[in-house]
Amino acid sequence: MRAVRHIAVNVFRESVRDKVLYSLVLFAVLLIATSYLLGQLTAGQDIKIIKDLGLASISVFGLLIAVFIGIGLVWKEVERRSIYSLLAKPISRAEFVLGKYAGLVLTLLVNIGVMTIAFYAVLVYLGWREIPEVREAWPAPAADPAMLGAIGLIAIELMLVTAIALFFSTFSSPFLSAVLTLGLWVVGHFNADLRDFEAVVESRPAVWLARTLYYVLPNFSAFDIKAQVVHAQPVGVGYLAQTAIYGLVYIALVLVGAAVVFSRRDFK
């Protein structure tokens, strides 16, 4: 565990010293500011549009961080051979993989945290500026704490994306890993449609295949409750808990897979 923590801290240090990360955070903050300006231009719906844009940009920037750092982490160590001296130290390859993952998750959570704070700051300001009559008409308060549920699920979704990116990067090139990870992410968002596949297709094998994929592929659409939260529709604690557990179990599966693949690998 000590080794895992040690590697994780080093990953975090690497990403903090990587200027790409700063610019991503900066861009997210800028986007939230832009959404604020946009809200000024469209009458009435501004609070909803800002919530939409804010949640979407947290999700998208988190995704960029998860994928584009996740795919490079292990690959870079192998490609530059820095892993040679590292693996001669008393750590197992599984600890290496877990440490890399933990470090990236730490980076990700810090980033999501920064974005969330900026997001809520804009919302609090907007709520404070508006006259009470308008505020009454909103379905939910500006700085609605229910959105934390949506952000929490986004965080778990991105942790799963990170795990998948890491898994692919234990055996393939960054480009291929990015394509595969993003591909899975897109497919995972159409997951609900796989269930209803027999509505559009009659071929039995195709339906079975869709069913199997529906059960086995990560169901990313389950993590997306942005629209519900923005429209102040209730999302039960049970749903949040069940989805979170699903995400964490899936993460464990992918990480064990990554550790197994990585433990067998030859570094030619």
Partner: peptide, 19 residues
């Protein structure tokens, strides 16, 4: 693991973390 605690290794053309 016990062996790794007691050995050192210099790889060919070593390379480490830029940052």
């Amino acid at each position: 693991a016990a062996v790794k605690r007691r050995i050192g290794y210099l790889p060919e053309h070593p390379y480490f973390y830029d940052y």
